[in-house]
């Protein structure tokens, strides 16, 4: 009997937490389906009948479709390039860590962790304006440079668990450095590449500051978070339309949740933490 009360207590605390997490989401969805009058009368009640009028108004806005497509294109293209760019830099670093060049390159990426975006943003805007890159292409390039910081760190950490014998065997079988990487090492790196892709796709999909400074001038370049932010200033549309937009965002954000939960939990729960070990450089691990 003594053991049951702490258990019930824990469950109560957990449930309170779940309600706290779920309530804003619930409120967003019920308000999105209310008429403006209903929402003004009572915030908390369920809608009397599902009305799609807010979504109709939302999708009638000229800037929404470009915003959705831009977000999808920017995230997809960045992810595709990151999937190959990051492992390609990390592999030589992990295998030649004794050499000064690779050591410098590694610490250069690690140093990026300390640099706040605010520091880059002002000069970046000047530079991108000069090169006529204040468009989605320029934004993708900036995301690529950002993805290298954490990506290389995670990949190099992962690669120290990949035995050297694998490449030696590949070389004996007639692979050169190029094919050894693409045919033997890259397939082995798939789990960590998946993790990096999810982290970066989520970051890029939701990122707000860089689109704000680089793409805000032209509404045909907007991304979804930028659209949300600009919609907030449109008070003439009423709060229910804004809630419809939030509901759309929550819905689109939740889509990667399935993948995320599947891959991430396994990855994080098992070996991941052993790799998040900043204090140690790859060669120290080799010797231990």
């Amino acid at each position: 009997m003594k053991m049951i009360w702490p258990k019930i207590g824990t469950h109560l605390v957990m449930l309170a937490g779940v309600v706290l997490i779920a309530y804003p989401v619930y409120l967003t969805f019920i308000t999105a389906f209310k008429t403006p009058l209903e929402a003004a009368n009572n915030y908390f009640a369920l809608p009397e009948s599902l009305t799609w009028i807010n979504f109709e108004k939302l999708f009638a806005m000229p800037s929404i479709w470009p915003s959705i497509t831009n977000s999808i294109i920017i995230t997809a293209i960045s992810a595709m390039i990151i999937a190959i760019l990051v492992p390609m830099v990390s592999y030589p670093i992990s295998r030649n860590f004794g050499q000064t060049y690779y050591r410098i390159v590694f610490y250069m990426f690690i140093f990026g962790m300390f640099v706040p975006v605010q520091m880059l943003m002002l000069p970046l805007v000047k530079m991108m304006t000069f090169f006529h890159l204040t468009n989605p292409i320029g934004l993708v390039l900036v995301y690529l440079s950002g993805s290298l910081i954490q990506g290389v760190f995670l990949c190099v950490g992962y690669l120290r668990t990949v035995p050297l014998e694998l490449e030696e065997a590949a070389e004996i079988d007639g692979c050169n450095a190029w094919t050894a990487f693409f045919k033997v090492i890259y397939p082995v790196m798939r789990p960590i590449v998946a993790t990096i892709l999810i982290i970066n796709a989520l970051w890029i999909w939701n990122e707000f500051l860089l689109p704000l400074v680089l793409l805000n001038k032209d509404s045909s370049y907007w991304t979804l978070p930028l659209f949300q932010y600009n919609l907030n200033a449109r008070t003439d549309l009423g709060t229910t339309v804004q809630f419809a937009a939030y509901a759309l965002s929550i819905f689109s954000d939740s889509d990667p949740v399935c993948i995320h939960a599947k891959v991430h939990h396994k990855r994080f729960n098992g070996r991941f933490v052993k790799k998040v070990n900043i204090g140690r450089s790859p060669d120290e691990k080799m010797s231990s």
Partner: peptide, 16 residues
Amino acid sequence: FTLPGVLVFAVLFLGP
């Protein structure tokens, strides 16, 4: 192999 990453990073991160 390191060149594309290092170039992107140097121009768009270290440069600014």
